[in-house]
Design a protein around this nucleic acid. Structure first.
Length: 288
DNA sequence: GATACGTGGAT
DNA sequence: TATCCAAGTAT
């Protein structure tokens, strides 16, 4: 396997974007919040929400002291609102189990609500400087191309972590940079749609390039259509409830003009099941 | 391992 | 206009 770390470190030093979470003084809680928001959401959309969130809740304890409804409201239209609920739960867990301090241990982080393989290691590495592999969708694509010679990565696997481990240099600081650099490269150069191989720092050792850019059979499943979906109905309900007063709305008034009343009921039930919505005595409201 | 889960910008 | 895609997680 070609050595990827040296050119990645050099390239990152010259080309890393200026992003809030790369500023000195960006703390562990700040990193944790940013990683929640970045789950499946583009950087450009996250930045303004992140700054507003941290201005309102500079510590986990401050978020935990407010009801989950406020977290869901502040989340606004960022998407996947369960993340707001989970981030609030994680803040409560940090307050109750870790004395209000974001844990540095990967297993302790994994035990928090809403934190999985990626976020746990991202916090351990980027907030606390530990040496672990951090593998997101960008890194998986870079590894698939540079090492496997495939245009697109296969489905996510725990083995991805082992593969990234082999790329990391020995030192903690360099390892953290290589983790960040692989993500950055996938985000701005080795992109999904139109890779910019002409400016890629590892093009000279890329297996995909050496093989003539073979087109991997498109194994990805089509994303379900959003228009007319249950997801859209959930989003519309939550939007109404975010805009409503804290005492909520009468259940009959929810999505009153929705074309499919069965779908509306299904969406409402699923939101209740997720804990994003509470319903009692004919009134629906965000979780208190 | 497959599936459900938001939203909006880019192509 | 339709489709693709985005720093994943829980079930």
């Amino acid at each position: 396997m070609p050595a990827l770390a040296p050119p990645l470190i050099a390239w990152y030093g010259e080309n890393a974007r200026d992003l809030p979470w790369r500023e000195p003084g960006f703390g562990a809680w700040d990193v944790l919040v940013s990683e929640f928001m970045l789950q499946q959401t583009p950087v450009a959309r996250v930045i303004p929400h992140l700054e507003a969130w941290l201005a309102r809740w500079p510590t986990p304890a401050e978020l935990a002291a407010d009801p989950p409804a406020e977290a869901v409201r502040q989340w606004a239209n960022l998407g996947y609102p369960r993340r707001a609920l989970w981030l609030h739960r994680a803040a409560v867990e940090i307050r109750d189990r870790h004395a209000g301090v974001v844990p540095a241990d990967v297993d302790a982080l994994l035990a928090l609500t809403g934190i999985g393989d990626y976020t746990a290691r991202a916090v351990a590495v980027f907030a606390y400087g530990q040496r672990h592999p951090v593998v997101d969708t960008n890194t998986r694509r870079v590894l698939a191309r540079a090492i496997d010679g495939q245009a697109q990565p296969g489905p996510p696997s725990r083995r991805d972590l082992d593969r990234m481990s082999e790329v990391l240099p020995p030192g903690r600081s360099d390892a953290a940079i290589v983790n960040a650099a692989a993500m950055e490269l996938g985000a701005v150069v080795c992109t999904a749609r139109t890779p910019r191989c002409a400016v890629c720092p590892i093009a000279d050792r890329c297996a995909w390039r050496a093989a003539g850019y073979p087109d991997t059979g498109d194994t990805r499943r089509k994303q379900a259509k959003y228009e007319g979906s249950d997801r859209q109905a959930r989003g519309a309900i939550l939007r109404e409830l975010r805009d409503a007063a804290s005492h909520g709305l009468p259940v009959d008034g929810i999505l009153a003009g929705w074309p499919d009343s069965r779908q509306r009921d299904r969406a409402l039930d699923s939101l209740v099941a997720d804990g994003l919505v509470e319903a009692a005595d004919g009134v629906v409201h965000l979780p208190r």
